[in-house]
Amino acid sequence: MLVRESKFGKSRNVPLSDSTAEALARYASLREGFDRTPGNESYFVSLTGRRVIYESVFEVFADLRRSSGIGRQSTVTPRIHDLRHTFAVTVLLQWYRDGGDVAARLPRLSTYLGHRDPRSTYWYLSAAPQLLALAAERLEPTLPQVNS
């Protein structure tokens, strides 16, 4: 799927599963029934046809979280950005575990996440202890040996 002029005005191709592509197609069909605000090219719109307000997304997510019971037993309330973080960390963990060249693959993840460049994606490495440990395991054999 081509995402046009998104974050930082960039466009990018984003791979989607068939089920996600089908759900987006169903949404697009429903959306066509809304009276759209003139000049509004946003993909996601409210029932009034206006661009979805960022804050409203958080409110809807909070309502969905509460009604589903997700995080009810947690001491930390799950946030919508936690989904993004979990996705990025899961991808990076898989890349480390499968022995792939993480540095070579990182630009693809950066593009998918809408980051300007891989430097913006590297913080995920330090944000998850499991990732930091796997990165250290890879680095350790390359370091000079120190005799104690």
Rank of each mutant, 00 (worst) to 15 (best):
A103R: 14
N13C: 10
K10W: 05
R66P: 00
F8E: 02
P15E: 04
A88W: 07
Y27H: 02
R66M: 13
V89C: 13
V60Q: 04
V60F: 09
P15G: 14
G39K: 00
F34I: 03
E41W: 03
V91E: 06
D98Y: 06
S42W: 12
S56W: 11
L47S: 11
R72S: 14
V52I: 13
R12Q: 10
T75A: 02
N147D: 08
E140Y: 06
S67L: 14
S68W: 03
R50Q: 15
S11G: 09
A104T: 14
H85A: 09
I53R: 13
E59A: 14
A127F: 13
R108V: 06
G71S: 02
S148E: 05
P107Y: 06
H81Q: 08
E41Y: 01
Y96N: 04
P118R: 11
E5R: 12
A133H: 15
R119V: 02
E41A: 11
D117L: 06
R31N: 09
Y112D: 11
S74G: 04
L109Q: 05
K7N: 07
G49N: 01
P144N: 06
I53N: 15
S29H: 09
I70S: 00
S110T: 00
Y43W: 13
G71A: 01
P15H: 09
I53Q: 15
D82T: 05
L92H: 03
A136G: 07
L47R: 15
L16S: 06
L16F: 04
E5Q: 15
R97S: 05
V52T: 12
W95C: 04
V89A: 08
P107G: 00
H115Y: 07
A103P: 00
R26N: 15
R119D: 10
R108K: 14
R79D: 08
R116N: 03
H81E: 09
L125E: 07
S29L: 04
A104P: 07
Q130Y: 02
E22S: 14
L92F: 02
E59C: 01
S6D: 06
R108M: 15
A25W: 06
L109K: 01
D117W: 12
F87L: 08
T90W: 00
